[in-house]
Each structure stands twice: as C-alpha cells, then as structure tokens.
Amino acid sequence: MLKIQEIREIIKLIDQSNIDEFLYEQEGTKIKLKKQGAQTVVSTPVIAAPPVAAQAVAAQATQVPVTEAKVEASAAPKETAKVEDENLHKITSPMVGTFYSSPSPDTAAYVQAGDKVGENSVVCIVEAMKLFNEIEAEVKGEIVEVLADNGQLVEYGQPLFLVKTV
C-alpha cells in the first residue's frame, strides 16, 4: 500500500510531466491519474484492500481539479511581482487539498494580515483525503497578505501567505 506522501509525490511528478495517464496497481489497490485538458483528475478505486486502508483510499476516490487553483492564483500577477521585489517569504501548500483559514466555521481565522507569527504558529489547515493538516509558518515575522480564500482548492506549492520576516 502506498503512503500518502508517496501518492503526493506521484501526483506532483505526473503534473509536471508530459504523461497524460498513469495507472498503478499493488495488492488489489489501483491508483489512476489522468490529465484531461487543463485539469488533473485523481481517481483511486479500491479492490480488496484492508479495511482501514480502504477507508483512507476511498476517501480520496474523488476527482480533484488541480488547475482550478492555478487559474485563481494567476489572477493576481501584479501581487507576485510585488512579492519578488520585496523578498517576502511565501508559505506554500505542501499538498493538493482544500484551504481552511480557521479550525471550524464558527471560529476566527488562525491569522490575518498584520498578525505576528512564530516558526511554529499554525496559520491554516489544508484538508486532503479527509485529513486536516495544520500548516505552520516556519518563519518568524508578520503576515502581509493571505493569498487563498477559505474553502478554496489549493495545489501543491501554491503560495498561501506572504510573510515579512523579522
């Protein structure tokens, strides 16, 4: 059975390559990755996998439009140029998933523009395969801008926050 990190790496490699379709089978589990035009689709039908692993893989058996986030992120090229000029640190998404700015819908966001953060400060959650992954700032500084909207699909490596380091 593939580990989640291995699946993420495969998705990243397929996304960056010219391969349009990839199929992997091991011990009754199938993973099929297929690019359709400007969209990458992840599909994982489960066949006779162990019960716990089957639940984790079945949770991922949905189509994930990766390039939707690319289109939304590229809508602000001026901001990206500003970031490079000022040498701000970008906090990026470590995986494909859904961005959440707060731990639950009825609570305040972890951080907003102007908030101070430390290296271990949680700045958001990225949900992938029904797992909620807390994303830490990794640097000490001040949040300059939040680049993703709550509930937005984000891709691997997509900038989520700009931080002016101290």
Rank of each mutant, 00 (worst) to 15 (best):
102 S>K: 12
138 E>L: 14
33 L>S: 00
117 V>R: 08
22 F>C: 03
74 S>F: 10
122 V>L: 07
119 E>F: 06
45 P>D: 11
74 S>E: 14
14 I>P: 00
57 V>Q: 03
67 T>G: 12
159 P>N: 02
115 D>A: 12
34 K>D: 05
36 Q>L: 15
11 I>F: 00
42 V>M: 04
85 D>G: 11
68 E>Q: 13
116 K>S: 14
91 I>S: 06
127 E>C: 11
60 Q>W: 10
81 A>D: 05
8 R>S: 12
109 A>H: 04
160 L>Q: 01
22 F>Q: 01
25 E>S: 13
94 P>C: 06
158 Q>G: 07
12 K>Y: 11
40 T>H: 07
88 L>F: 11
1 M>P: 06
161 F>D: 07
43 S>A: 04
155 E>Q: 14
118 G>K: 14
155 E>L: 12
164 K>L: 05
1 M>T: 09
103 P>S: 14
63 Q>K: 04
12 K>M: 10
122 V>Q: 14
60 Q>L: 15
154 V>Q: 05
44 T>R: 06
10 I>Y: 00
102 S>A: 15
107 T>A: 13
152 Q>P: 03
90 K>M: 15
36 Q>P: 03
8 R>W: 07
71 V>W: 05
21 E>C: 10
74 S>V: 04
80 T>N: 13
117 V>I: 09
23 L>N: 10
41 V>T: 12
20 D>G: 08
92 T>L: 14
34 K>H: 06
111 V>L: 05
100 Y>N: 02
74 S>A: 12
150 N>T: 07
70 K>A: 11
